[in-house]
Amino acid sequence: MKYLQGKYPVINKQALAHDVYSILILCPEVAKLAQAGQFVHILPTGFGLRRPISIAGIDKKNGVLRIVFVIKGNGTKAIADLKQGDFIDMIAPLGHGFTLMPEAEHVVLVGGGIGVPPMLPLAEYYGEKATAISGFRSFQQVILQEDLENYGAKTICCTEDGSAGAVKGFVTTPLEQLLTESVDAVFACGALPMLKAVAELCKRNKIYCEVSMEERMACGVGACLGCACEIKNADGEINFLHVCKNGPVFNAEEVCW
C-alpha cells in the first residue's frame, strides 16, 4: 500500500457539542482510497507527534473526508483551532477498517461518545439494514443522530442520566434486546469497558463482532510498535499486534480483554 502524506485544505468546520468538532477536508486522493474504519494521522502545528483520528465521512465524488473529534489535550485543541482555508498535515488513509458485508440483512452499529463518528461510514454503507445504538453521558454530548438517520439507519440513543434519547443507561441494554433478533454482525467503537461489554454480549449470542480500538501512537504506519494491543490468534497464541496497522478494527473474539 502506498501511503499518502500531504497538506490538505479545511473546507468546513463546525462545533457539534462542547469540545466536539466536525471538520471537512478536501483531499481527493485520500478520499478515493479511504474505507470505513480507517483513520487519518494529523500533525497539529507545533507538535512532534501526530494524532490519530477516525474517519467519519467519505465523499469520494467530491473528494472530501470528514473527521469528528473531541478536544482531549493541546494537540487536538490545535486541530480544533484550524479555520476554513487552513491546511491540515496528514498521513492517510491508515489502518485496517471494518469488514463490509454485502449479504448482511441486519447489522448493529454501537458507538460510545466519540466512538460514534466512525459508525457514520458504516451507516452510509448499510443504510436501512443498520441499527445504530449510541451512548453518551448526558444530553450535552449527544452528536450525529440525524446524520445516522439521514443514511437510513434506525437510531437508538442512550444517555447515562436519561437526559436525552429513548434509553436511560448504557448501550448494552438495547443491544442485548436486539441480539435476540436476527443480527448478522455488530460493529463497535468506544471506551474500552463498553467494547468489552459489547464483545461479551456478542460472544454469548454467537454474533460476529468487530471493534475499533484506540491506543497512543507514534508512527501510525506500523514501524515503531508503539500502539500495542494484545491479540490471540486462531491457535490461541497471544501477540502484541498494532492498532495502527493490524487495526484499528479487530475481530472482537481475538482481542485479549
Binding site: F47, G48, L49, G75, E215, R216, M217, A218, C224, L225, G226, C227, A228, C229, E230, F240
Partner: peptide, 18 residues
C-alpha cells in the same frame, strides 16, 4: 514487548517503552 500505553508525548519530545 511491554504492555500499552507505550508512547507519551512530552514537551519537544516523547517517551517510549516498547
Amino acid at each position: 514487548g511491554n504492555l500499552a500505553p507505550r508512547i507519551a508525548e512530552t514537551p519537544a519530545g516523547m517517551l517510549n517503552s516498547v
